[in-house]
Simulated scan of single mutants.
Amino acid sequence: MSVYRTSEAQVDAKAALATLHAAVDAGVTFLDTADVYGHGGNEQLVGRLLADRRGEVTVATKFGITGDLMARRRQARGDRAYVLECADASLTRLATDRIDLYYLHRPDPAVPIEETVGAMAELVRAGKVAHLGLCEVTAAELRRACAVHPIAAVQSEWSVWSRDVEANVVPAAAELGIGFVPYSPLGRGFLAGTVTASSLDQDDLRRTLMPRYHDHNLPANLAAVAGIAAVAAAAGATQAQVSLAWLIGKGAEFGLPVVPVVSTRFPARVAENLASVAVRLSPEQLGALDRIADAVSGSRSRDLQWVSAGRE
């Protein structure tokens, strides 16, 4: 399945819509968004695409983060009333009568996950949602959720340099027959070779929210991912393509479907990313990529409770 994650970046709406159409024209069948991206504006943008092409795509969206996703004041919320309220608001913005895959964006530490998933199950019974998903859950949280209602997909960060989910969450998903949807599979540009020490402004939010982008970690991390370029050259592919191919290979290794979601604003990048499905990596190349995570400096989130690794 081809996937395109609509970008939360501030872009010209006309250009963004053109990129969405180009992605679907290229064979993308799965769009990923959330109510917090652009404070609802991203869902509205996707809704404009759906007005003409609803039958061509599967749409996933998310709820559960209040405040600003990229700011210090973000929080998780998962009480029943909020679940039902958010679903109706997303349906309106998307201008559709059903959400194909509805994710809890983050578990609410103040609300048992059984309560949140129970409310999400009400949406399935009402015909407003087809399938349920969870983001950044631990293996234990996933099992508890599955006892309430079937879970179709887990979305968490997973990439060449972020592999903590392989310890517990990925094996649990494989055991339960749940698909895995890695976000930031290109390390927010780092693994694709588009991030350098000089390209990160001092006020770049990645520096604020993600320790591995801090000045004292950048040199080690730039050295760690340099091996991706060597693998890409040997494979006749780009760094982005081999990073995505590695993830697909990991899915086969763990025995579960893996569908990376990639953010971009440019049609050329969509085409580049789609071509990763044809990249074949040798065992030696996969091994070289496997070793990169061992040399990475800094955690993937300033607040480890915000991601599953901090709660496992």
Score class of each variant (00 low, 15 high):
Ala9Asn: 14
Asp12Asn: 15
Lys14Pro: 00
Ala15Gln: 15
Leu17His: 05
Ala18Ser: 11
Thr19Lys: 07
Thr19Val: 10
Leu20Pro: 01
Asp25Asn: 08
Asp25Arg: 10
Asp35Ile: 07
Val36Pro: 02
Tyr37Asp: 03
Tyr37His: 11
Gly38Asp: 13
Gly40Asp: 07
Gly41Lys: 04
Val46Trp: 04
Arg48Asp: 14
Arg54Pro: 05
Glu56Arg: 14
Val57Ser: 10
Asp68Ile: 11
Met70Gly: 12
Arg72Trp: 11
Gln75Met: 12
Gln75Pro: 00
Gln75Leu: 11
Ala76Phe: 10
Gly78Tyr: 07
Tyr82Gly: 04
Val83Leu: 05
Ser90Met: 04
Leu91Trp: 03
Arg93His: 00
Leu101Arg: 02
Tyr103Met: 01
Arg106Ile: 06
Pro112Leu: 01
Glu114Met: 02
Thr116Ile: 04
Val117Asn: 03
Val117Tyr: 03
Ala119Val: 02
Ala121Phe: 04
Glu122Ile: 04
Leu123Glu: 05
Val124Gly: 04
Val124Leu: 07
Lys128Ile: 09
Val129Ile: 11
Gly133Asp: 06
Ala145Phe: 13
Trp158Ile: 13
Ser159Ala: 15
Ala172Ser: 11
Ala172Lys: 03
Ile178Ser: 07
Val181Ser: 01
Pro182Asp: 02
Gly187Ala: 06
Gly189Val: 06
Phe190Lys: 03
Leu191Gly: 02
Ala192Phe: 03
Thr194Val: 11
Val195Arg: 00
Leu200Gln: 08
Leu200Gly: 06
Gln202His: 12
Gln202Tyr: 07
Asp203Tyr: 08
Thr208Trp: 12
Leu209Glu: 13
Met210Gln: 13
Pro211Glu: 14
Leu218Lys: 00
Asn221Ile: 12
Leu222Ala: 07
Ile228Asp: 00
Val231Trp: 01
Ala235Met: 11
Ala237Phe: 07
Ala237Leu: 12
Ala240Gly: 15
Lys250Phe: 11
Lys250Asn: 14
Phe254Glu: 12
Gly255Asn: 09
Gly255His: 07
Val259Ala: 15
Pro260Leu: 10
Val261Gln: 12
Val261Lys: 00
Val261Met: 15
Ser263His: 04
Arg265Tyr: 08
Phe266Gln: 15
Val270Phe: 09
Ala278Tyr: 00
Leu281Asp: 08
Ala288Pro: 00
Leu289Val: 07
Arg291Ser: 14
Arg291Gly: 14
Ile292Phe: 10
Ala295Val: 03
Arg300Leu: 13
Leu304Val: 06
Ala309Gly: 00
Arg311Gly: 05
Glu312Arg: 13
